[in-house]
């Protein structure tokens, strides 16, 4: 399923909404999650999962091709942990 298919399904379930508004709803949803993480906040959606930001410490890396050492700066990466209910549903337990 891709973004446009998700929008299409919501539009079908909600015939009273304008397509334009459905697009804004879906875009706002994902935009808010990304904005929160860009601020360093977490987004916890019980039953589905939680988005958070993890810090990766600076390290000495190595170019695997040349063997040359390179300094890799500390960085912040997005992280998702699946919620318990969804994890169970994926395995037919809920």
């Amino acid at each position: 399923m891709i973004r446009s298919e998700l929008i299409q399904k919501i539009a079908e379930q909600n015939p009273h909404l304008y397509q334009r508004d459905v697009e804004r709803i879906v875009n706002t949803f994902f935009e808010e999650v990304t904005n929160a993480m860009a601020r360093g906040d977490r987004v916890e959606l019980r039953g589905f999962g939680a988005f958070s930001v993890k810090k990766r410490d600076a390290r000495i890396g190595r170019n695997p091709r040349t063997g040359e050492t390179v300094h890799v700066e500390e960085k912040y990466v997005p992280f998702f942990k699946t919620g318990k209910l969804l994890r169970d549903r994926l395995n037919g337990k809920a």
Partner: peptide, 30 residues
Amino acid sequence: MAGKTLTRMDLSEAVFREVGLSRNESAQLV
């Protein structure tokens, strides 16, 4: 990361603000 935690409520509030549906309907759509 001394950030706060957002929930469904914050996402509904954003949809409410951006799209102008009722709070109740915004929550349902989220």
